[in-house]
Structures are given as structure tokens and as C-alpha cells.
Amino acid sequence: MNTALSAPAAAIFPESGLPVRKSVRRLRWFIAAFEHQVDEIAAETGNAYEINRNRLAATFVEWLRAFEAQKPSADTDRLPYVGFAAGLMLRTLVRQKPLTATAMPSACDRSNPAYYWPEGYVYVAFCLNVRALVLEQDFHEKQALVPALSEARTWWSFRENVAEDANLAIAFLDLFAGEEPNWTMPDKFQPGAVRALASRFYRQVEKGPKGLS
């Protein structure tokens, strides 16, 4: 696994007097943190990237709107909403495409996710790192990453599926973070009470996306 996805997230992002759950809702921090993430991965992989600031600002605005729209009121839903909000961020990055890889090392291994999809790799790393930092600061929880995060097959499926339906990015981020993905309605946050009720009425038949068995 590349260090960009296993290094302590706090070391990557800019200092802020606020907790990350609040900083990330500030445009200045969001842009600075994303740029730090890009620098980190560029240094690690040898890839060169170009950031479109207008698209990054559009990512922020669209994500914040989606974040506020489904923000739960119950305290018990705060923890699961962290992962969902990170997934919303990945969906918006995939849609807005604020990053372009302009060069890669000539002899790079294209089966490595960082070279297979260099932009997607940064998006995933950024969202996982923000997620990890909020979990750590607010809930004293450590984010678990799964081997799928380094598997070429998973990344192929991830790229193919989100190109057709960006909402699946939310489920894929759950998969990468070792959580149970919701493949059927990934863009709808299910508060605890709804989840509990649904499990009593319906048999859960979760069908994975194409390319993942």
C-alpha cells in the first residue's frame, strides 16, 4: 500500500485551530488541504498534476450543499455520517474532475492504482485522509483500510462503475475503508432508526457493482 494512504493524515493537512470536521467546511482549508494532498502524492509517485481551482471551488460548493442536505440530527448518527460525508466528497470530486495528471514516470507500473488512475487515486486518498482525521479527532477511532485498496481489479471496477454512476463512489469509499457498502442506494444516508426498521422488513440482498463479486 502506498504511504499516501497509510501515513498519518494529520501530517498531510495544514494546521488549523479548528477540528477538521469544521475546517473542511471552509473553502480556504479545503483547497489548501487538497493541494497538500496532491503535493504529497506527486512527491511519492513522481506524477505531475494540474489543479483547476474553479472546479475545486465548485466541488466544495456542491459537496457542502449535499452534506447539509442529509446531515442527521441524532447524535447516534454522527459517526456513520462521517463516512457518508467522505463518500459524498469522493462522488463530487469524481464528478467535477478538478485534477488532471499531466505526466507520469515513464517506467511506472500501470497496475498500481496511483498510475492506473492517477486522479482517482488522489481523490480517494484525500477523502480517506479527511475521514480518518475526523474519526480520530471526534470519535477516537482509527480508520481501517482493506487490501482491496491496493488491488488492480477493484480499481478497475471502481473507475468503470463511477464513470457510469458517480453515486457508486460513496459505496466504493466504504469498501476501501472496510465498511459495508450500500450498492443499491449509495447516495441516501440511512439514519440508525431507518436502518434498524428496514432490516426487520426486508431481506438484505446486496448486489455488488460490475467487476466485483
Binding site: L27, R28, R53, A57, A58, V61, E62
Partner: peptide, 12 residues
Amino acid sequence: LLALCLSLTEAA
């Protein structure tokens, strides 16, 4: 900061 506000306005 001004450049950021121009981008934010564009987005919103």
C-alpha cells in the same frame, strides 16, 4: 483570497 472568492462566486 480575492481569487478564491472569484472561484467561489463562479461555483455558487
